[in-house]
Design a protein around this nucleic acid. Sequence first.
DNA 1: CCGTCATGTGTACAATGTTCACATTGATCC
DNA 2: GGATCAATGTGAACATTGTACACATGACGG
Lengths: 197, 197
Amino acid sequence: MYTVSTSNHRYHHGNLRQALVDAALALMVETGGTDFSLREAARRVGVTVNASYRHFRNKDALMVAIAAEGFRRFGRALMEGALEADDPQGRLLGSGRAYVRFARANPSLFRLMFSSFNVGRQEEELTLAGNQAFDVLKSGLATFLDKPADSPDVAVAALRAWSLAHGLSYLILDGQLAHLPLDEDTLIERVISNHAG
Amino acid sequence: MYTVSTSNHRYHHGNLRQALVDAALALMVETGGTDFSLREAARRVGVTVNASYRHFRNKDALMVAIAAEGFRRFGRALMEGALEADDPQGRLLGSGRAYVRFARANPSLFRLMFSSFNVGRQEEELTLAGNQAFDVLKSGLATFLDKPADSPDVAVAALRAWSLAHGLSYLILDGQLAHLPLDEDTLIERVISNHAG
DNA sequence: CCGTCATGTGTACAATGTTCACATTGATCC
DNA sequence: GGATCAATGTGAACATTGTACACATGACGG
């Protein structure tokens, strides 16, 4: 997952920061929720809680780091999804599918990413990673609409696509699709692609 | 907000359950986040923490109760939004606007509602309130499409509308609309109504 | 070799969620 | 009307958590 230092430090860990991120993420996955214990994460890594304060100002800072890591993976997933097709529309649909796929595969991380956005809005790492993910969608839409990326039309279309994928992902995570008459994948496909009614 | 018992109980509160819900909600609003302290809520109500355990199994149960209360208000807001117009399409747009309006007006509550959905999925009160809110959208779409409410087409259309409003609301709460070239209300209007660029 | 700075440990503290034993209330039945 | 009893409150206690402060240890450049 991350490169460990070569020597066998008894005292110094080597890459505690990333190790804490990974441990906390693992804890979240086990719980299924978006919460974790700082102490427990440190315990897993084999280190005292206080050691983590050398790498994060407080627990919120660690959560922001996790969210940022999530957004980086997220952006990558969106790009790879876009590469599944060759035409602009296909690429757009590909990112949409990748969006939902990511949310389903990493529910806790996905939730944390978007719930810690207000907490750590001032944190540069987070906003940067978040904007980069959004840019994937925007540039895809710009080429699809054949208009400049900063035009209002592109903004509106991107926002609509983003909203659609985002809302759909959340509804799936909340189990809101279970009651519906079609199976999940068919629903996702029909919702994302634009064949209205 | 809620009817208090007539007599001046020194010991018995009268409607502690609802009072705790209100206090916790107020705390969330003050913090801006979705978290609160059970003890602090009890303190506000003028009661010991332990008293709350007569009305809620634990803190999560209180959160679920808050979320359910939120979904009831939410459902009402959607209905009122639909009543702003007379034609089916106008009603649909009305609920969409009401959806986003509710999220902006009650950000903490909105977040809690959808983040506690997995925690308290087994809780009947919550799922009931949630489904009722969703039914408002579904019935509106059924009359709009003039098809039976349980048809796949209605399901897909409802899911798409719900996703759109939901995602847009979340993106607004996350402050993702600040960077965009149009002002928020114009964006919302253009995203919700279907004039694809 | 030795300072010095980053990185770790130990101790301490207030706050929180939760539990258990006990107190108080108010309705119900004789 | 007074005893009974379930509903509803209090009080003390405990483990866990996030955080702060003083100190230990290690790596490394002069």
